[in-house]
């Protein structure tokens, strides 16, 4: 999936996260993560994000994440929503989102 425009999903409320995606000017994939629980869970959050992006076949883009202590399922859902919005996706392959 190709990110063609900036998009936003999620909130900054406690136990949620805000995901911003934007096209990458040099076609690289960059994930910038900031989290209130980065010391304990930074690696785990990053794994969930990378895995979600890989399943959606996102190969390029700037992904900025402000995490407020969200659970894995919330992280996955917010990343998916932001990417789908930024890719202006009309036909959703639901199996890839499972």
């Amino acid at each position: 999936m190709k990110i063609i425009k900036p998009a936003l999903a999620g909130t900054l409320e406690s136990s949620d996260l805000q995901v911003k995606v934007a096209p990458s000017p040099d076609d690289t994939l960059e994930v910038v993560l900031s989290s209130e629980v980065i010391k304990q869970f930074g690696q785990q959050i990053r794994r969930v994000v990378d895995d979600t992006l890989a399943r959606l076949e996102v190969k390029a883009g700037l992904i900025i994440i402000e995490d407020k202590g969200a659970l894995d399922c919330a992280i996955r859902a917010r990343v998916q929503a932001a990417v789908l919005r930024g890719a202006a996706c009309e036909h959703i392959d639901w199996e890839k989102l499972s």
Binding site: P6, A7, L8, T11, L12, E13, Q18, K20, A22
Partner: peptide, 19 residues
């Protein structure tokens, strides 16, 4: 205050402002 900022960020996004 958090809800307020959140709301402004969402409205800005609806208007096409992400940065």
């Amino acid at each position: 205050s958090l809800q307020l900022v959140n709301e402004v960020v969402q409205i800005a996004a609806e208007r096409g402002h992400f940065h």
